[in-house]
Each structure stands twice: as C-alpha cells, then as structure tokens.
Simulated assay, not measured.
Amino acid sequence: MSVVLDAVGARRSYSRVTAAVPTHEDLLPLVAAAARVADHGALRPWRLIELRGDARRRLGGALVAASGLAGADALRLAEKPLRAELLIAVVASRRDNAKVADWEQDAAAAGVGHALSLLLADAGWGVMWRTGPLTRTRQVHDLHRLTESEELLGWLYVGGVPEDAKPGVRQAIDPAEFLSVL
C-alpha cells in the first residue's frame, strides 16, 4: 500500500483535542501542499483564516448574535469555538471568471480544506471540520471580514490528539456500490 493510501485510510475526526497546536510557521508548508488540489484555471479561489485566542471568543459572540439565543443556551453556543485552541476558517473566495463556474471554485476551496485536514492529521494533529446552521449568517460573515464574493465553508478545529483517544470507527463501504461504469 502507498503511504498516501495509508494516511487517508487512517484519517478520523477528533471531536475533542488537547491545547497543543501547530504554530503559524508549522502551518505554512501544509497550506502550500494543500494548494496543490485540482483548481480549474489556477484561480486559487480560497483562503484560510487562523482563529486563535480572543478571535475564538469573538466568533462565539457572533454565533450567539446570529442565533438569537439567550441564557444558558447562549453560553453553551458561545463556548463552542473554545473546543480547540486553533480554528482554521475555510473560505471559498470566488473570482469572476467566464470559464470557471462558482461551483467549481467552491469545490477547489473544499478540496483545500480537506487536503489540509489530511495533512494536519498526517503531521500528528487532531482535526475536525465543523460547520452548522450559523456558518453563513451575516454576523459570522462580518466577523471573518469576508467580501460579498466569499462564503465560509466551515472551520477546522485543530489540536493535539488526546492520550485516551480511541481509534476512529467508520463503517466500511462496499466501493462497488459507489463506483459505477458507464
């Protein structure tokens, strides 16, 4: 088996991570590698935003403002971005292009997010891609300083793998059910 096949096959999401996180400098070569995903027209229609420290608290506030929740429910929602010390926002940053449709550009941005999650996992970090109904609200859009041509695809929650983490369980598939011949 190839190293890549083994790494992808071993990938799992970590809903709980430790406070250890990669530095900005640690992320740079991973982002450079993730940028190699298929990208029709080489538009690079994506960008990534690191959220650390107080930025995570501000995100919690934006989520609460967008939700309209109050009291204990609002407090629980505000704490969600604090589940990891590092969040990486994955943004589809569409370019005006007559040859490359928006959906293709969104696919390239999602590819970068997924590739980065694989690269982080391969580097030993725990990662989970999180979204939710508030991801594309105005308050969250504004907090990330997105332009009108940008859409937030979610956040990679990144941290150390807990010592007591159990192996990920994913039901095996019959690949023949998902791969057909025309």
Rank of each mutant, 00 (worst) to 15 (best):
G126T: 06
L134G: 10
L153H: 03
S15I: 08
H141P: 06
R44T: 13
G160Y: 11
R16W: 12
L69D: 09
L86R: 00
D164I: 11
V169C: 09
R44I: 04
L143R: 03
R57Q: 12
R16H: 15
L48A: 10
A176N: 01
S67R: 03
R44Y: 04
A74N: 08
L27H: 01
A107H: 08
S15E: 09
W46Y: 14
G124Y: 12
G61W: 05
G60M: 04
D6M: 09
V100T: 02
R36G: 13
R44L: 08
Q171R: 13
T131R: 01
G160N: 08
L116H: 11
W155C: 03
Q171I: 08
V161H: 09
R52Q: 04
S117M: 12
P45D: 10
A121H: 15
E150W: 07
G126H: 04
A62S: 06
E148F: 10
A176W: 09
A78I: 05
T135G: 00
G9P: 05
L86E: 00
R83M: 02
E50H: 01
E25M: 04
R16G: 07
L48Q: 04
I88G: 02
L59R: 00
D26Q: 06
A115C: 12
D122S: 14
H144E: 02
W46T: 02
A108R: 00
A32W: 08
V37Q: 06
E85N: 11
A55Y: 01
G60I: 05
Q105I: 04
D26C: 02
V169S: 12
H141F: 03
D96P: 09
V37W: 12
D54M: 01
L75I: 13
E104H: 13
S180N: 07
W46D: 03
D102Q: 01
A32L: 10
L179I: 14
L119R: 00
A19G: 11
W155V: 02
P81M: 00
A115S: 15
W103C: 03
D164E: 15
A84S: 13
K80T: 14
A70S: 15
G126F: 11
L118K: 01
V127W: 03
I49D: 02
W155E: 04
H24F: 06
V90T: 12
V100I: 09
R12A: 05
P22W: 10
L5G: 05
G154I: 02
P162F: 12
E104K: 00
Y157K: 00
